[in-house]
């Protein structure tokens, strides 16, 4: 636990095992919104990455996991400021590989636009930068969540279809929504201008599920950015990270290793 901008923040570090060079790659995992936490990365990618000789850092976003839940302060810029201070406090000043899931990817893009020198690459999993279409989609999705979250029938359906585990997660997310201004603030951004998008010149790997949140246009993210490659996982919905973690692991390990080897050559 560490205090970041007045908020007790839960983070986890895993040191690189048998690093292949004196300055091993630093990989920072940023989880998504709602019923997500650092566990999604900690229990899937974190250990294999440390094992592969990379420094691993992951944390719970404000109001998520074990991190404190202030009533307000949920604009995208708040999440970017949190990450900035968290890296500073942990002495991480070299450029990092930011791996963001869903809203975590949106944070990664805004962080890179603000601090281009601090990002070596971005891996965006089922995510997109904060643009007008993103804000609309996010606003609509959150409206539906709010409208449906008190419906007992939905919770029963969730429990019957996916197990009580999912129903409990949905209840926890509803409690977060009731206790904070997260739903109102997140879609406010601030959004990235075309000039800011063009300034994200680091290499980006966009991993999408063919049936995920970007299924209407799988090339939309790539077309917004100067240097982005897309990998699509067939037949997969938005839960790419947790349901296909081994596929994602291999893709991202290959991605970071290739960039690191190229820099060393």
């Amino acid at each position: 636990m560490i205090e970041v901008r007045g908020i007790r923040t839960h983070y986890q570090r895993m040191p690189a095992k048998n690093p292949r060079s004196a300055s091993p790659p630093v990989v920072v995992f940023v989880h998504g919104l709602g019923y997500d936490s650092l566990a999604s990365f900690y229990l899937t990618l974190a250990a294999p990455f440390a094992e592969a000789g990379m420094e691993v850092f992951t944390y719970d976003l404000r109001a998520h996991g074990r991190t404190e839940r202030p009533a307000t302060g949920y604009r995208l810029s708040d999440f970017v400021d949190d990450l900035t201070e968290l890296l500073d406090l942990n002495g991480i000043h070299q450029p990092v590989h930011l791996v963001g899931n869903s809203f975590g990817g949106t944070i990664a893009f805004s962080f890179a636009a603000r601090h281009p020198g601090r990002v070596r690459s971005i891996v965006s999993i089922e995510a997109e930068p904060a643009t007008e279409p993103w804000a609309e989609k996010m606003g609509r999705t959150l409206e539906i969540v709010v409208a449906e979250m008190d419906n007992e029938e939905n919770l029963r359906w969730l429990a019957e279809t996916f197990g009580s585990h999912h129903a409990r997660l949905a209840k926890a997310a509803a409690a977060m929504i009731r206790a904070t201004s997260i739903v109102e603030e997140v879609p406010q951004g601030p959004l990235l201008s075309s000039a800011e998008l063009a300034s994200i010149t680091c290499p980006v790997l966009s991993i999408l599920g063919s049936e995920g949140f970007q299924s209407d246009d799988l090339t939309a993210v790539e077309s917004l950015l100067p240097d982005c490659r897309t990998e699509v996982i067939d037949g997969q919905n938005h839960s790419v990270l947790v349901e296909r973690h081994r596929t994602v692991r291999d893709m991202v390990l290959g991605w970071v290793n290739a960039l690191h080897d190229r820099a060393a050559a």
Partner: peptide, 27 residues
Amino acid sequence: ESIDLVAVAAMLSERYGEQVNLAAFLA
């Protein structure tokens, strides 16, 4: 929840040493 498994992972490695790596096992 899965975040509680993260806490258990930390307690296990504290008790039994680094070779008891729950995160690697669950991955």
